[in-house]
Design a protein around this nucleic acid. Structure first.
Lengths: 255, 255
DNA sequence: CGCGCGATTGAGCACTATCAAGAGCAGTGG
DNA sequence: CCACTGCTCTTGATAGTGCTCAATCGCGCG
C-alpha cells in the first residue's frame, strides 16, 4: 500500500526535484505526508473561489482547470492542469482560494491538509524552494496567457494553447503519447482563450483546412508542429524547468 | 546613511510582515542586505526578457510595468508595479527573466544580487514564506488580468484596471492621495488591457461623460467609486493581504 | 429509441481595430 | 522669445474580427 502511494507521488517529487536538489530526508518527508487519494468524476469541483483553502491537492491522473466567473456570467479558464501538477498550491500557501478548480476529465487527486504543507516547508528549505518555484512557473504561465489573450488573434491564441499543452503533456505522459489528446470541449477552449464557442469552432475548422491539425471527438492530432508553433507565436521558454526542447519527440504521428 | 536606507526599505519590510510574522532577526537580516539604491529615468529598462536574472530589485519610488512582445510587434503589459513592490522577484527566484521590466515614471530602485536573496531565504523560513506569498499575490493578479482581458468589454477592463490601481495606491501612498494619480499614457493603458490606444481614448471619453471619472493630463480622478467598481466588476479579494476594505478612504475628493 | 450535450452552420450585427490627420503641449535650441 | 520637434491625445471614416441568436446535426448513453 505504501509503495503504491509512493508510486503515485513520484511525478510530484520528480517535478520538485527538477526545481531544487533534494536530499534523501527531503524526499522521505514528502513521501510520508498523509496524502489521501481519491477518484473524482469529470466536472466535479476540487475547490471553489472564496473557500478558506484548508487542503492542498495534486493531480495523480486526469486533467483539470482553474476558472473565474465574471459579472455577466461569463467564465474564464485561467489555467489547465495535467497529471503531476499541483491544483491549488497557490491557494494553500496563500490561505485563500482565488479561483475555482474543476475536473475536466475523471481522474485521481492526492489531498493533504494545508497545515502539513506549512510544516514541511519550514523544516525543509530545499522543498520550500521547490514548491515556491513551482508556483513561479504557474505565474509565468499566467503572464503568458495574459499576453496570449490580450495581443493575439483567435487563430494564434488557439494554436498557442495547443502548443503549450503538447509540451506539458510530453512532460507528464510516459511514454510520450503517439498523438496528442486534448480533452477539452470547444466551449472550454473558448473559455480558456477568451473567445466564444462558435468562433472556436470556425477557427479550428480553418486550422484543419490549413493542414495544421486534425480533430476527432476531443482529440487533437498535430499535423504540422513547426507551423503550429509559428502560427501560435510559441516559445516554450516561459514553461521553464523543461528539458531543453521537447520538440524532438514526434507529436505528429498519426493514430 | 544606514538609517536612510533603512527608511527606504521600510515599505518592503512592512509588506513582508503583512504576509508572515517576522522576528527581530528576520527584519535585521533583511535590512542588512547589501542593497544599492539607484535613480532611474522614465522608460529605462530594469530587465529584459531572456536575461539571466542576476539581480533582484524593489521599487522605492515611481511606477513600472512588466511586458512581453508578441510576433506582430505588439506589446502586452502584464502587470504594473507601485512603490513598495518587488520588480522581478519571480525572475530572481526562478533564475530566468520571463518578461521585460521598464520604468513608467522616473523613480528609485533598490537592487540586490540574486544570490543574497537565496541565502536569506534558506536561513529565514519566515522571510522565505513571506517572499513566496508576495509572488503568490502577483500570480493572483495575473489570473485576474487573464479574466479581465479575456471576458470583459473595453469599458469594464479599463474600469477594473483603475480600481486595482486605486486600491494598490492606497496601500503604498501615505498619506492617502486626495486624488488618484494614474501615471499611464493611454497607449500604456491600451497595452495593459489588450485594446488599441484609439479605443482606450474613446472609452475614457465615454466614462468621463458618464461621470465616472475625470482626467487631466495623466491624472485620473475617480468621481464615482462605487459605480466604477460596478462597471469594472471589481472585487478586491484577489489582491489578498490587504486591510479589510480600502474603500473607506475617499477616493473621489476633487483636486 | 429518445434524450442531451457538444459540434456545426447561417445570417446579421457590434465592438474594436485600422488608417489618417489634426490639435495641444512640453522641451529644445536658435 | 519664438520656431521646431516629438509625443500624446483627439477625431473621423471605414473595415473587419469576433459575437449573438437560432437552428440543425451527430453521437454516446440510459
Amino acid at each position: 500500500m505504501s509503495s503504491l502511494s509512493t508510486e503515485k507521488l513520484k511525478p510530484f517529487l520528480d517535478k520538485l526535484e527538477a526545481h531544487s536538489s533534494l536530499n534523501r530526508a527531503d524526499c522521505a518527508a514528502f513521501e510520508q505526508l498523509p496524502f489521501s487519494f481519491e477518484r473524482v468524476a469529470a466536472g466535479s469541483h476540487i475547490a471553489r473561489e472564496g473557500d478558506p483553502a484548508a487542503t492542498f491537492c495534486g493531480m495523480v491522473s486526469g486533467f483539470s482547470y482553474r476558472y473565474k466567473i465574471v459579472a455577466g456570467g461569463g467564465r474564464q479558464i485561467v489555467s489547465v492542469q495535467v497529471p503531476g501538477d499541483f491544483l491549488d498550491l497557490q491557494s494553500a500557501a496563500l490561505g485563500m482560494t482565488v479561483y475555482s478548480v474543476q475536473m475536466m476529465t475523471p481522474g485521481e487527486v492526492a489531498t493533504l491538509p494545508a497545515a502539513c504543507l506549512e510544516r514541511l516547508a519550514d523544516r525543509h528549505p530545499d522543498l520550500h524552494r521547490a514548491l515556491w518555484r513551482e508556483t513561479l512557473v504557474d505565474a509565468s504561465i499566467f503572464a503568458e496567457w495574459v499576453t496570449n489573450i490580450g495581443r493575439r488573434d483567435a487563430r494564434s491564441r488557439i494554436a498557442h494553447l495547443l502548443c503549450e499543452f503538447a509540451v506539458r503533456l510530453q512532460q507528464c505522459v510516459s511514454p510520450p503519447a503517439p498523438c496528442f489528446l486534448l480533452p477539452m470541449s470547444q466551449e472550454q477552449i473558448a473559455d480558456a482563450t477568451g473567445l466564444t464557442p462558435v468562433h472556436v469552432n470556425r477557427t479550428l475548422q480553418s486550422m484543419r483546412h490549413s493542414g495544421l491539425i486534425r480533430t476527432q471527438k476531443r482529440q487533437v492530432i498535430i499535423d504540422d508542429w513547426n507551423q503550429l508553433m509559428r502560427v501560435g507565436d510559441f516559445d516554450p521558454a516561459y514553461l521553464v524547468a523543461l528539458p531543453p526542447v521537447g520538440l524532438a519527440i514526434p507529436l505528429h504521428q498519426s493514430v
